Simulated scan of single mutants.
Amino acid sequence: MQQTLMQTDFHFTGQQDVYRGKVREVYTLANDVLVMIATDRISAFDVVMPKGIPSKGQILNQIATKMMAETEDLVPNWLMATPHPNVAIGKACEPFKVEMVIRAYMAGHAAREYKAGKRMLCGVPMPEGLKENDRFPEPIITPATKAEQGEHDEDISREDILARGIVSEEDYVVLEKYTRALFVRGTELAAKRGLLLVDTKYEFGKTADGEIVLIDEIHTPDSSRYFYADGYEERQAKGEAQKQLSKEFVRQWLISNGFQGLEGQSVPEMSEEYVESVSQRYIELYEAITGSSFQKGRVQETLAADIATAVEQWIQSQ
């Protein structure tokens, strides 16, 4: 069993604070600089699994930073440097307390809600007569509140976001504009790889000088769902499951083992064989999404030391 990076305890030069999220750990340095470490933790249904996934942190960070580079002409982002495959360094921002979810197909959460008889999602109507994984007439934005640690994200409508003052109308118009622009670019990038970008979420923040920027991950298998374009229509016509690239396979495994993050449910045991299979799926996701062969970083035993060295070298170079 490969070792995994489950948590860190760094003390960087100029460090002022540290925040530990579900899968990332964020260190605040002087001059409003953030160091984001992508661990190998994996979460589903807003619950962190007890075992990590080898190479997952590196994979997600490398996809996210690559996608930020490929969209920075459309939307400004927080990223300043990536001195290590598990590390992203950027500008501190005040995050908006909503996730901008956009869906082109009725899949995942939308499909579960539709199956339960709902025809409205986050104040947006869903047409009658759709089958799971059908394409919507046009992409829909279905925001979610950004939960505090240990709580669940919740669906919310545009109207409620504005009525509750979570985001000003002026800023929300920008978030919608950026979300649609990023999704168009993400769809184009996916098509080049023979993929369909099914749905995704974007998170934004505001810098100290008032600029709205893209933060967190973008177009990764944890924040997005992809289908293989080849055979999509045939599978839909036959009512077959779509071949997809996302974390949904982990969610489905948990559901089949009686876990959906509900009160009283216990996380099923993940065998070493299953953990390794998930790691291999993440590598497959990386190679399909980026079109590049995955190159594993340094051996896991020295991973934390390598990260510390890379970040310190970057700090000293500034």
Rank of each mutant, 00 (worst) to 15 (best):
S246H: 06
Q318W: 04
C122W: 00
C93R: 00
A110F: 01
R119E: 03
S168F: 06
G57I: 13
R164M: 11
K243S: 13
R119T: 00
E132H: 13
G231I: 06
P127A: 06
V174Y: 02
Y105M: 11
F249H: 12
E287F: 07
P143H: 05
H84K: 09
H11E: 15
I315V: 15
V47I: 11
W314P: 08
A81S: 14
G194L: 05
R20P: 08
K51Q: 12
M100E: 08
E312G: 13
G14S: 13
L195P: 07
R180P: 08
P95R: 04
W78F: 15
E287N: 11
V47S: 11
I156R: 03
W253S: 10
E240S: 12
E233C: 12
N133V: 10
I42G: 06
G239K: 09
L162H: 10
E234K: 10
S224P: 06
A208W: 00
K177M: 08
D160A: 15
V275T: 11
T28L: 15
I255M: 14
G108V: 04
I161W: 08
L195Q: 05
K56C: 12
L74P: 02
H11Q: 14
S246L: 10
A191C: 07
R164K: 15
F136E: 03
G21S: 13
R103V: 04
T207D: 13
V184M: 11
E203L: 02
Q16P: 07
